[in-house]
């Protein structure tokens, strides 16, 4: 998979950087708004998947509709 390989390498690099101790520019105590349920990428996964399904069944496009990453890292 030509595209998947660079993506994998990039991911490994990002994971490596994760160990370097970059200081968060939004402190945990500043994330109250991001922790609000209205800021969740997807509150209802079954419903979203169903809507995606109805669309994909009638459109040529598919994929990449998942909400990337989780919540806000508020804990």
């Amino acid at each position: 998979m030509q595209i998947a390989r660079p993506a994998l390498i990039a991911s490994v690099l990002v994971l490596s950087c994760a160990c370097s101790g970059i200081k968060p520019w939004v402190a945990p105590y500043e994330r109250d708004r991001l922790a609000d349920p209205i800021m969740a990428w997807d509150r209802d996964a079954i419903s979203t998947a169903y809507l995606d399904h109805t669309r994909e069944a009638r459109e040529g496009s598919r994929g990449a509709t998942g909400s990337a990453g989780g919540g806000c890292g508020c804990n």
Binding site: W41, R43, E56, A57, R58, G71
Partner: peptide
């Protein structure tokens, strides 16, 4: 085969995945 079902299984995996990602903040 129904066209409407063609990609449902793959989307269902996505649903499970999204559900996992929706709140993954160390708990």
């Amino acid at each position: 085969m129904h066209p409407a079902y063609r990609h449902l299984a793959r989307i269902a995996t996505l649903a499970a995945f999204v559900l996992m990602r929706a709140t993954n903040a160390d708990v």
